[in-house]
């Protein structure tokens, strides 16, 4: 074994340097004790990919190699910690794009090796669950987390750190994927989420009654049919106001997301509902999620947009809990593009 300190114990003052490169954000953060964010630096590559209408893995990989070390240096500077104060180095090791993941994992393992501290590979999905805990470490459990991004749409019951149960998930497209595809079809550009969010404010969400798939049926989601309905409607009604289409589409997605989260929260007797993932930055979803919490007398936790979208602070939080429960990971750890959330039941 390399020179890891045998007396090392994970505690409230344990400082983790965390790296996130699973898609098109190059991010690094310094997090103490799993909850205190000392720095959180994110560099988005959106401009590099916008011309192609989506993330190009090879372009993302190249950008991560260039950007990562300066971002790590900035995270250390902004946290005002000397590298000697870093107790562990973590990186997202899946799920995500293989090329980008390998850059972050390679960098994190090299830093951990050079500083002679533990390395921790973090599951990106698990990390999203910790965004809520970063906001409120004393969050009463269990909670239901709605995790919605370009790659995932999941309802998860979290009973504590490391204790998760999958309640429902999409059977086809992820919600964010539907936003991107509809935005592309409407000629709104990339990324689609913010574009639809902006345009929807000028439209009538009741103008078109798009289907709410499986609204009353279980906890799984389906967005592929909705996307097709939008396309069919626009083809049949070429003069329709694009803002009305955007607003009506968004309302349909949000209706289903919020209704199923409420039902899941009732089902498991959750103390709170928590929002996470890139789509959690959508303003209608945030508004309706908060309103649903008030009506149900249940706490609705809306982490800041910075914490909902991809960031390294959540990686640092998840890493702290992983390190405490499982210890360091070996340096021959690779990246796993299809890594799944390990559920406890």
């Amino acid at each position: 074994m390399r020179g890891l300190n045998p007396d090392f114990r994970v505690n409230e003052s344990t400082v983790v340097l965390a790296i996130e490169t699973s898609c098109d954000e190059t991010a690094a953060a310094v997090v103490m004790g799993g909850t205190e964010v000392l720095s959180n630096v994110v560099s988005s590559q959106i401009d590099l990919h916008a011309a192609f209408g989506g993330v190009v893995p090879e372009i993302a990989s190249r950008a991560h190699v260039e950007l990562l070390n300066p971002i790590v240096a900035r995270a250390l500077t902004e946290a005002n910690v000397d590298p000697s104060r870093i107790d562990a180095v973590a990186a997202t090791y899946g799920p995500g794009l293989i090329g980008p993941l390998l850059v972050g994992v390679s960098a994190a393992k090299a830093l951990a090796f050079a500083w002679e501290v533990p390395f921790i590979g973090v599951n990106h999905l698990e990390a999203h669950l910790y965004a809520g805990l970063l906001d409120d470490p004393s969050l009463p459990m269990p909670v239901v987390v709605l995790l919605v991004s370009g790659g995932h749409t999941m309802l998860i019951e979290m009973r504590g750190p490391g204790e998760y149960r999958l309640i429902g998930q999409t059977i086809d497209d992820a919600a964010g994927e539907a936003f991107d595809k509809v935005a592309r079809f409407l000629g709104l550009g990339y990324p689609g989420g913010p574009a639809i969010d902006r345009l929807a404010r000028e439209g009538d969400p009741t103008a078109i009654d798009f289907p709410r798939a499986m609204l009353h049926d279980g906890f799984d989601f389906s967005f592929s049919g909705l996307k097709t309905s939008v396309m069919n409607h626009v083809r049949k009604n070429p003069s329709v106001a694009t803002a009305d289409v955007a607003a009506s589409f968004q309302a349909a997605v949000v209706d289903v997301l919020v209704a199923k989260t409420r039902r899941a929260a009732d089902h498991v007797g959750a103390q709170a509902m928590v929002l996470g993932g890139g789509v959690a930055a959508n303003s209608l979803l945030r508004e309706r999620f908060a309103a649903a919490g008030e009506v149900d007398g249940r706490r609705a936790l809306l982490p800041s947009r910075e914490m909902c979208t991809d960031n390294a602070a959540m990686i640092g939080a998840a890493a702290w809990y992983r390190l405490r429960s499982d210890g360091a990971m070996p340096l021959d750890t690779g990246a796993f593009p299809n890594l799944r959330l390990t559920v406890t039941s």
């Binding site: 190699v65 790590v72 293989i98 390998l102 960098a107």
Partner: peptide, 19 residues
Amino acid sequence: LFTGMRVGIATAKSLAQAL
């Protein structure tokens, strides 16, 4: 090989940064 190169370069840069 792009992916192989990047593993080496990311590792070298980070070792250099840390050391």
